[in-house]
Structures are given as structure tokens and as C-alpha cells.
Design a protein around this nucleic acid. Structure first.
Length: 579
RNA sequence: GCGCCCGUAGCUCAGUCGGAUAGAGCACCAGAUUCCUAAUCUGGGGGCCGCAGGUUCGAAUCCUGCCGGGCGCGCCA
């Protein structure tokens, strides 16, 4: 709809050579926006004000000139100059009717743009460490990432979703030793579980369920022998060494990998139940086995981006705006997590993705500059990597704030949250506010007031429409679509006009939400749309005696039902036929 | 100390690229159904957009400073 107005303006400008210079670097479509006040029409353009200074004319004079040269269109009823120089466009009923028929015609495809080939987008999100179940904070990442992926797809982008599995490094050893100790405990060995181990009950479950052929029993004495005191990190380190000695490197590896896969599979299942799926689970370990890290470091070396100091290898991050240079290979020869990360992002670009989007926790913001620096140092553009930071979720039960820590075992899991409030409400609530806002999630409120949750309000609108069509059948009537199409001119009530106008905004909302990675725009839109529908429902009957009017009204609410279903599908929320 | 994010109604939050009289839900007050689902609708009260400057036709929005809150500043991951 917006493009109708933009094209009219572009054509008018083309006939005005005196404005050509001034308007050269203005995108006409960017001057056109929906009005907030219906008395200003449907769309307004501020182009006359933007041209005033370069063209050295008054805005209202420019507006008058443009209007004079606007071609007549059956899609626009009235064009007016308003205020300091806005050009207001009132769309015709014909334009709204045409859009309604487009909704019916395109159905589930309505609001989706044609698929394009580029840029190829790689969307990475969640990527929680496979050391325990997902907690409520990860749930926000999952809901947001999945919805942004759906939005990008609807906007026509080729997008793939990827989960980076942090299955390398010390945390995996801690996981392995935690499982082993719980297994020993189950064998009757008296252990003192280390503070720095993973305390959650799921560790016991894993110890019970895995193949323990590789496990060997050691006595309690050996476990505590020579343990350092007080320093919890040194204690866990010593226990890992004991485990490797007792089990052998292969034996320990066997336990560790089983634990890892058990947790990873659990996370995958949890997310799938939440309607969140990935095209690829990318293993950090595989970066080492495929020599990807060494290749990336070689590229950096070749470009002169590395140097040796204090026995370590450093990346010149300060050349790319970071506050200090960063170690990529430690003095002990081990590569850092940062080395994996730049190799991983290098790999993403090498795999042919043009634009990389990472959804990261707000605590990772210090990391963005150096990873972008890594890309730039390897010959790509820093801007190829876009990072969307998610602010934290604080979980409450009433006034009680919950602690969320995987190691302490006191977290509240995504599973618990989903069981308590349901997938639909959780998906909806998680994306209903901007990703850069903190989210207070009160379980008591979400449970006790679940009937007041906006998601039900929107779903109810969908169910009500389904109910109307069921009623129609019960009264032995049929919806005559051609008759409805021919009689759209009968839709003259203010509630009908409002509903048609809101429906016509849908493609613009998808575009806006996708481009800004901002699902909350869609959430608010669907709320508005449901509100327009409920208002209409209360004001007028749809199943009226007059055939023409009935068929026209049924067409309008069918279009409404389609748009609600399409929008909810993008949010990952169900559109029920009954409630 | 330095860096990033946030500050909008009693509460939780929207507010697009700077646009016209700043919006919604909850809560509060008053109403609506012989009729398609009352999980609904209609009306009402409620604002120094943290504070102070600046930019301009125009600022909640952009810039600077300050105040308040969150997070980050490892040869951890």
C-alpha cells in the first residue's frame, strides 16, 4: 500500500525538473509513513519539508507543486496539504478492497515477500553451553531468535539457523568429572562433591543412564589425597587429573562425550518442543579436528596480525578498535576460546554466508568489537557480523527473585517455565518487548493471570472467527466468496474501514519487524488487529439476512483470520479454532 | 576509572528514518449481551518522556554534560 503512494510521488517528481537536484539523494519511499491520526488520511509524506532547504522554496509551495503533478489514481480519494507542509493521502475504498482480495488470494503467503537469493544470512542463537538444561534466560534467546528467523524468511531472505555447541575446553572436563563423581557416589563411594562441579540433579540422571564400562571405582581415600584446600578451582583441577589417571584419557573422554551428547540432545528436544529448530548444530570440537582454527590463525599470521609476547601469541585487536590486544595461543600452547570464535566466524563467511547475525547475551557486549576485528583482519568487513544483544531475564515468584546459576543448581529451567505458562504464552511474552530491555518474568502473574495475557486475546479473535463460520454451517448457510468480492462496497461501517486499514498494514509491519530484528512490532500489531476485530464483532452481526452484506462481511473476517494466523505463525504461537 | 545498554502514566512496556494533540495492557471508576464465544466491547481519570543545554521548520527520538539502574573490562568459556 505504501508503494502506491511512493510511486505516485516519484512520478510527480519526475515531471518537476526544478526539484530534481534537491530530491536526488532522497529515497521517496522513506518520506512516506502511516499517519497516527485518521483525520490526516492513511499516509503522509514529509518530502516537501525535506526539499525546502535544498530547493530554497517554502514547504507548502513545494507540496502544492507536487500535488498539481500527481497522476489521478483510483486508489487515492483525496490529497491535501496539512500543517507545515505534509502531503496527506486518503486511500480509496477501492485500494482497501483490492488488498482484501489479495489477502484471500494469497492466504498463508500473504505478507511474505518473494524469495531472493542474497544476501545469505546465518542466524546463530541460543548456543548455550552443553553443561546443563536450558534456563529461562535461554528461552528468551530461543523465542527471539526463532521469531527473527521467521521474520527474515517472510521478508524473503535466505536464512539458516545455527547452534554453536561449546563442546571444547575446560568446562567439558568439569562436566565429565562431575558425572564420574556422581557415578562413584551411586556405587557407594563416600565423596565430597566439589563446589566448582555441576551440582544439578541432571548430573545424577546422566550418571545413571550412560554406558559406564569405562568407569572404574576408586576409593574415597584416593579422591581426597593431595587435594588443595580452599581454592575451589584448584580442587576441581586436581579431581579432573585424578579422573584422567583412573580412567585413562580415552576412558575419561568416553564419559565426557556421553555426558555432552546426553545434554545436547536434551537441549535439542527441549527447543523442538518449544517450536525452535536449527538447520545445523555446529561443534566447537570440529573446528579443531578440521584444522579450522589453525587455518584462521595462518591467515592472520600471513596478514601480519599476530605477534609473540611473554610466550603467548597475540592478535592485534587494538588495530580494530578493541581496547587491548588479545591472546589467541596461550603460553602453555593451548588456543583460547577467542581463537575458536574468530575461526568460527571466519568459517561462516567462508561457507558463503554474506551476513552473520549473532544473538548474544548482554554480558557478551565486550566481545563484539574483537570478533568483528577478527573478521576485518582476515579480509572481510567488520559489518558482516551483526550482533543483537539480549538483556537479561529476571525470574520472579511473586516478590521473590530467583537465582539462575547452572553450577549451583538453583536455576529454573525453560522446561519448568513452559510447563507452567504454556508454550504459546511463553513464546509470546518473550518477544513482546525489545531485546535491549530487561525482562521481569513473574511466574505467579503469568500463571494466575494467564487469562489476561494478550496472547489469549489474539487467539480468541481467531477462534471467534472460526466459530462464526461454524455457526454459518449450523444455520445451513454457505459463504459465497464471489458474491462477497462483488459487494465489498457494502463495507461502509467505521469498524469495517478501521479493520480493512489495519489489515492492509500487515506487510509493512513484517518488513519493519524483520529489518529492525524487532518482533515486538508484530506483537503490537496483532494486538491492534484483534482489538479492531473484537470491536467490530461487538458492534455488528456478520451473519445477517442480506446475502450480499453477509458475504462481504464474511470475506472481511476471513481475511482477518488469515492475517492473525499468519502473524501468530511467525511468532511460533498456535492459532486455535476453538477456545 | 573506561566501555556498552536502559530511564516514557501507579505497575509492565510500545513509540519506525526526527513529524502533526505522546500510546497500549494491567490496576482504578462508570456502563453494555432477548443476537455469531463476556477470554469481548464502550466511556473516564491519570505524563516535567530522568535533569540541563545544543542542533532545526519541528526532538521522547540526534549531539554534549550530569543523575540513576543493569552489564562488561582474564593467557576463563
Amino acid at each position: 500500500m505504501k508503494s502506491i503512494v511512493a510511486h505516485l510521488l516519484e512520478n510527480a517528481l519526475a515531471t518537476l525538473p526544478e526539484l530534481a537536484d534537491a530530491s536526488a539523494d532522497i529515497a521517496v519511499a522513506s518520506t512516506v509513513e502511516r499517519t497516527r491520526d485518521p483525520s490526516h488520511g492513511d499516509f503522509a509524506s514529509n518530502i516537501a519539508m525535506r526539499l525546502a532547504k535544498p530547493a530554497r522554496m517554502s514547504p507548502r509551495d513545494i507540496a502544492a507543486k507536487i500535488i498539481e503533478n500527481l497522476a489521478d489514481s483510483e486508489l487515492v480519494d483525496e490529497i491535501a496539504i496539512a500543517g507545515p507542509g505534509f502531503i496527506n493521502f486518503h486511500l480509496s475504498a477501492v485500494a482497501l478492497h483490492r488488498e482484501l482480495l489479495t489477502v484471500l488470494d494469497q492466504g498463508t503467503r500473504y505478507g511474505r515477500q518473494p524469495a531472493r537469493k542474497a544476501p545469505r544470512i546465518l542466524l546463530e542463537f541460543v548456543s548455550a553451553n552443553p553443561t546443563g538444561p536450558l534456563h529461562v534466560g535461554h528461552g528468551r534467546h530461543a523465542a527471539y531468535g526463532a521469531t527473527v528467523g521467521n521474520l527474515l524468511e517472510a521478508a524473503g531472505y535466505p536464512v539458516e539457523r545455527e547452534y554453536y555447541v561449546n563442546d571444547a575446553g575446560r568446562q567439558m572436563d568439569i562436566l565429565g568429572v562431575s558425572v564420574w563423581l556422581r557415578w562413584l557416589e551411586a556405587q557407594g563411594v563416600d565423596i565430597s562433591f566439589p563446589e566448582a562441579g555441576y551440582h544439578g540433579d541432571y548430573i545424577r540422571d546422566i550418571a545413571d543412564s550412560i554406558n559406564t564400562e569405562a568407569c572404574s571405582v576408586v576409593d574415597a581415600e584416593r579422591l581426597v589425597h593431595g587435594l588443595p584446600e580452599d581454592d575451589k578451582e584448584a580442587i576441581i583441577e586436581a579431581l579432573i587429573k585424578t579422573a584422567k589417571d583412573a580412567l585413562g584419557a580415552d576412558g575419561f573422554d568416553h564419559i565426557r562425550q556421553q555426558a555432552l551428547e546426553s545434554i545436547r540432545a536434551d537441549i535439542e528436544e527441549d527447543l523442538a518442543e518449544f517450536g525452535v529448530t536449527f538447520d545445523r548444530w555446529y561443534s566447537e570440537q570440529s573446528l579443531t579436528t578440521s584444522n579450522r582454527i589453525d587455518e584462521a590463525l595462518a591467515v592472520l599470521e600471513q596478514r601480519g596480525m599476530l605477534y609473540e609476547e611473554d610466550g603467548a601469541t597475540w592478535f592485534r585487536a587494538t588495530d580494530f578498535g578493541d581496547e587491548k590486544d588479545r591472546v589467541v595461543v596461550r603460553e602453555n600452547g593451548n588456543k583460547t576460546y577467542f581463537a575458536s570464535d574468530i575461526a568460527y566466524h571466519f568459517d561462516k563467511r567462508e561457507r558463503g554466508f554474506d551476513h552473520l547475525i549473532d544473538i548474544l547475551g548482554a554480558d557478551h557486549h565486550g566481545y563484539v568489537t574483537r570478533v568483528q576485528g577478527g573478521l576485518a583482519a582476515m579480509g572481510y568487513a567488520a559489518e558482516d557480523l551483526e550482533v543483537e544483544l539480549m538483556q537479561f531475564v529476571a525470574l520472579y515468584r511473586g516478590n521473590q527473585r530467583m537465582q539462575m546459576s547452572t553450577r549451583s543448581g538453583e536455576f529454573d529451567t525453560l522446561r519448568q517455565l513452559r510447563a507452567e505458562v504454556g508454550n504459546d504464552a511463553a513464546r509470546f511474552f518473550y518477544v513482546s518487548r525489545s531485546n535491549d530491555q530487561h525482562l521481569d518474568f513473574d511466574l505467579d502473574v503469568a500463571k494466575s493471570e494467564s487469562n489476561d495475557n494478550p496472547v489469549y486475546y489474539i487467539q480468541y479473535a481467531h477462534a471467534r472467527i472460526a466459530s462464526v463460520f461454524r455457526q454459518l454451517a449450523e444455520r445451513s448457510l454457505e459463504w459465497d466468496t464471489p458474491s462477497g468480492s462483488e459487494n465489498l462496497a457494502l463495507l461502509t461501517e467505521p469498524q469495517e474501514k478501521a479493520l480493512m486499514t489495519t489489515l492492509s498494514r500487515y506487510p509493512e509491519v513484517i518488513d519493519l519487524a524483520a529489518n529492525n530484528r524487532a518482533p515486538q512490532h508484530l506483537v503490537h500489531y496483532l494486538r491492534d488487529l484483534a482489538n479492531d476485530f473484537h470491536t467490530y464483532y461487538n458492534a455488528h452481526a456478520f451473519i445477517v439476512d442480506d446475502d450480499k452484506q453477509r458475504n462481504a462481511r464474511l470475506l472481511l473476517i476471513r481475511a482477518t483470520q488469515i492475517v492473525i494466523a499468519n502473524g501468530l505463525a511467525i511468532l511460533g504461537v498456535s492459532a486455535p479454532e476453538t477456545m
